[in-house]
Simulated scan of single mutants.
Amino acid sequence: MRDRMMMKLEHGAGALAAQGATTAAAATEVVDHGPRIRAVVDTEHAFVWRTLRRLGLREADIDDAVQEVFVALFRHAAEVEPGKERGFLFRACEFTALRARRTLARRRETAEADPASVETPASDSPDHALGRAQALERLDRVLDLLDDDLRSVFVLYEIEEMTMSEIAQLLEIPIGTVASRLRRARTSFMSHARSDEEAND
């Protein structure tokens, strides 16, 4: 998957010039970032996948969205300071997920497998596996109800287990704003979770 993605990204450099999007010199500059982008794909692929999933994309739509996010990084590699690629990727995930939520019909799958979760052991009973799938589905429903800015902070802190300082750096916002959004996100999450539980009892 990642090798195919890199082949498409590297092939895209020539296409940029052909489309008139860049000069030949700019296309060459993009190609020069190939090794760096490959390293970022290797280290951040799982993060991008999980982020898109938690921002509301269906599992069936994520592979294309992941490629779109890395294409954005590839196109803007010269503008992204080394070491700050994850911040760019997260913002690209937000934009990609927002666009997908606006254009794709909501077709919920009731028992999606999530690679961000722990794999179901072979010894798990069907009831246990079903309970795990239902818990993931419920989490997705509640996350969908959070405002975008609150969901971003909530996902990064509670699911990705990043510190508030790391989130502030990633999102380029003051740490006080992170703390405020996290408090509001937790309150909103608990309220929506209670409502969801009552509605599905």
Rank of each mutant, 00 (worst) to 15 (best):
D3R: 14
M5T: 02
M6P: 04
M7K: 05
K8H: 08
E10V: 15
E10T: 14
E10D: 08
G12F: 05
G12D: 13
A13V: 06
A15V: 10
A18H: 05
A18G: 01
G20N: 11
G20R: 06
G20C: 04
V31D: 00
V31E: 09
D32V: 00
D32G: 06
H33V: 03
H33W: 07
R38T: 07
R38S: 10
A39S: 14
V41T: 01
D42S: 09
D42H: 06
T43D: 08
T43W: 01
T43I: 03
T43Q: 13
E44D: 04
H45I: 05
R50F: 08
T51Y: 05
T51Q: 07
T51R: 04
L52E: 12
L57V: 09
R58F: 13
A60D: 06
D61P: 00
I62N: 07
D63K: 11
D64E: 15
D64L: 06
Q67K: 06
V69Y: 06
F70D: 02
L73C: 12
R75C: 09
R75W: 01
H76W: 03
A77W: 05
E79L: 12
P82A: 08
E85W: 06
R86K: 13
R86M: 05
F88Q: 11
L89Q: 02
L89H: 06
E94Q: 15
F95C: 01
T96W: 00
A97S: 01
R99T: 09
R99V: 10
A100I: 05
A100W: 13
R102T: 05
R102Y: 03
T103D: 08
R106V: 03
R108D: 15
E109F: 13
E112S: 03
P115S: 04
A116S: 15
S117Y: 11
V118T: 07
E119F: 00
T120G: 04
P121M: 10
S123Y: 12
S125E: 11
P126Q: 08
H128I: 04
A129S: 13
A129L: 07
L130F: 15
G131K: 04
R132L: 15
A135E: 13
L136N: 03
R138K: 10
V142L: 02
D144F: 05
D144E: 14
L146V: 10
L146D: 04
L146A: 09
D147Y: 02
D147N: 09
D148S: 11
L150T: 12
L150M: 14
L150N: 11
R151W: 06
R151N: 04
V155D: 02
V155K: 07
V155Y: 05
E160N: 02
T163A: 10
S165N: 08
E166N: 01
I167A: 11
I167S: 08
E172W: 07
E172Q: 12
E172H: 07
I175V: 15
T177R: 15
T177I: 13
A179M: 00
S180E: 09
S180A: 12
L182C: 01
A185S: 10
T187K: 11
M190Y: 06
S191Y: 09
H192P: 04
A193F: 10
A193R: 12
A193S: 08
S195K: 08
S195A: 15
E197T: 14
E198C: 03
E198T: 14
E198A: 10
A199S: 15
N200M: 05
